[in-house]
Amino acid sequence: MVKSRRRAFTLVEIAVAAGLVALVGVVAMRIFSTVGTTQQNLSQQALLQMESRRAFDHLVDQIRMGTDIVRPTTGETLPYMVFKDVINQMTILYLEPNNDAANALGQRVFRLVSYRNDYSGLYQKDNEKILLDSVKQLHFTSLSPTSVQVNATVVNEKGDYQFLAHIGLMNLGGLE
């Protein structure tokens, strides 16, 4: 009859096993960290896209309802746009410096502001809207009397997002 003898781990075996566990742990932590950072970057970029697209929708809807482009004139490129809205109120889209974002990002960053003149002769706070908070640059080019091309770059800590749109006015008929 053979009597089996249970043998304990040697000190070397335990040391090797502990080393392997530590190595796997370190690698796993590095992977977690990298995946986390990447996910965070992707999320930031996706959020940037989302905010930009939402603002872009507002912008397109506003311009599309316009009756007449005042500035830029055909062939002109400007960092602002003036047009008459659906009820002939004068509307301007322009950039104002966003100092908080600029200080955070270390570069010139603007807000995109929309203001509508209701001919009351006074500044009306309710007629002002902030469409976007972090615009790096924005240009409007009028390619025809009834359409405008918008080229904008929005920015956050994780990068830039650029969009380009050609928007045509829909309310061209005027009055009888």
Partner: peptide, 10 residues
């Protein structure tokens, strides 16, 4: 137009 004139960058 009567809009608010923004200040420049700090």
């Amino acid at each position: 137009i009567g809009a608010r004139v923004p200040e420049d960058f700090q």
